[in-house]
């Protein structure tokens, strides 16, 4: 039983502040190391030593650029045995056949998750908000259930809710997914909107294929052309 008059205003405030402090600490524990609020490396959430590799096939050119990245990882002895899970947008009918033809995706060895698309080309920005929320709720389950150790994304917007779900999983302590974003080779002078969102706080690493892009946006790393 609590004593009369407890909690008084001061201790109530202290509790709220302590709670906020804990949340903030947790956030600093899991956000990308690049961010100013991130804790030093030795205090950050550790990567998982096992788990699947997840990639979002973004459609068209994005998918074409993703395939060699996943093939590269599949050739590594330490990741060759890792299960591969792919996420595609519901409106994208070409990515899966293309990935299968290239030999990168093989069902039923690999798993496929289909999510609603957050934004169709030409859709107005205002109608994007509910669509993005729907895409986010649809992304949470595949990510939290498969708990990937690595998420590779390269745009377009479809990959944003998936990365957000992975970060949520990190915050909740469900997974320790590391998120790597590779900007399209088509972006020479400026980051895509997806790239800017990733750089702002979703992706652990933002890789670009042109040196002038890395020079322009702090936090991007130049790796060269992967195509």
């Amino acid at each position: 039983m609590l004593a009369d008059g407890w909690p008084d205003a001061t201790s109530a405030w202290a509790l709220v502040l302590a709670g906020l402090g804990l949340l903030l600490f947790r956030l600093a524990h899991v956000v990308p190391a690049r961010l100013p609020i991130a804790l030093p490396k030795w205090l950050r959430q550790r990567p998982a030593s096992e788990g699947c590799i997840m990639a979002v096939l973004g459609s068209g050119g994005h998918t074409a650029e993703m395939l060699p990245l996943i093939d590269t990882l599949a050739k590594r002895p330490d990741l060759a045995g890792a299960r591969r899970e792919f996420v595609v947008a519901a409106t994208d009918h070409t990515s899966v056949p293309r990935a299968e033809a290239a030999g990168t995706l093989s069902l039923p060895r690999d798993r496929l998750h289909v999510i609603p698309r957050s934004r169709e080309v030409g859709q107005s920005w205002a109608s994007t908000v509910p669509a993005t929320l729907r895409a986010l709720t649809a992304s949470v389950w595949p990510v939290l259930a498969s708990r990937p150790r690595l998420l590779v994304v390269n745009g377009p917007g479809t990959c944003v809710p998936v990365a957000a779900a992975a970060l949520l999983g990190r915050f909740l302590g469900v997974c320790a997914t590391r998120i790597v974003f590779v900007e399209s080779v088509c972006r020479v002078e400026s980051l895509s909107l997806t790239g800017r969102i990733m750089l702002a706080g979703l992706a652990d690493r933002v890789l670009v294929q042109w040196p002038q892009l890395a020079a322009r946006h702090r936090g991007c790393e130049y790796i060269g052309i992967t195509m």
Partner: peptide
């Protein structure tokens, strides 16, 4: 001629290694 993409792909792979701590 274009540079071999293998160099860029191994740079990507190295970043993944750093992230996974291996």
């Amino acid at each position: 001629p274009l540079a071999d993409p293998a160099t860029s792909l191994s740079a990507f792979s190295a970043v993944v290694s750093e992230e996974l701590g291996s």
